[in-house]
Amino acid sequence: MPSARRSPFIPHTARLKESIDLTPDVKLFRMELEDEAVRKEFQYKPGQFAFVSAFGVGESPFGLASVAYQNDAVEVAVRRVGTVTAALHELEPGAIVGVRGPFGNYFPLEEYKGKNICIIGGGIGMAPLRPVIRTILDNRSNYGKLTVVIGSRSPADLVFASEYEGWGSQPDTRVELTVDRGDANWKGRVALIPAVVKEIHLSPENSVAIICGPPIMIRFVLVELKALGFAPHQIVTTLEAKMKCGLGKCARCNVGDKYVCQDGPVFSMDQIAGFLEQF
């Protein structure tokens, strides 16, 4: 009696359509799921993530950088930091990768309708925020003011830089860029993200702040948002944790009684404050 169950560990095969250099160490992978039925079923919302396999090396989780309704390619931004990401960077278009997902919860954009949205992203943290921005811009009249604060180590490290102008030209939308260190061509702001948050004086009134970036950046942005009057429930972030399954089984991402892979990765700060174990 062969088991009819499909193992949730088995990825769907996908063809790498394109890999686009976003920064010196970040590439955008545009992948097309091979099986047509799977392609139709693979629906997801901003904030969710998927595992991508470089077969023979391993698989790692990535925030989905595309919006499901916009195209048939599944996109992730991959920063070269370990063995799996290095192997993915080596792949040429046409290569077969594995995709498993989507997993996790998502940013509750339905609940944010009518509100002002502040999006604060540092470095590769922009990846899961990009579908949030796209969704809001595609449904512009449903939301209030949109402020996007983007920062990176250097101008070359700004992820999705080619899209900023398009975002900023939309009504009621401003994009604020900053870098830790400028270069010869950089005429913009040189400041840390928390300083920009303070400088542009984001208003907490009828607002939600969505943050994604390195833990240290998040910590200091929180200090500024708090000073500006944002309440914990008005601040939402995604947590990054070690994960191997995405199914709540391997127990790696277990923090307090939560599993980041299933209960998250999106949490509001009042939820995080209630965690038994500090993250």
Binding site: F9, G56, G58, K244, K249, C250, A251, N254
Partner: peptide
């Protein structure tokens, strides 16, 4: 106790095995 790790192995003929092993917190 059921924590685990998953890694890939490449065997003869380039066949990839995705292997799960015990791991602990």
């Amino acid at each position: 106790c059921y924590c685990f790790d998953i890694r890939d192995y490449v065997g003869k003929g380039g066949v990839v095995e995705r292997v799960r092993s015990w791991e602990s917190c």
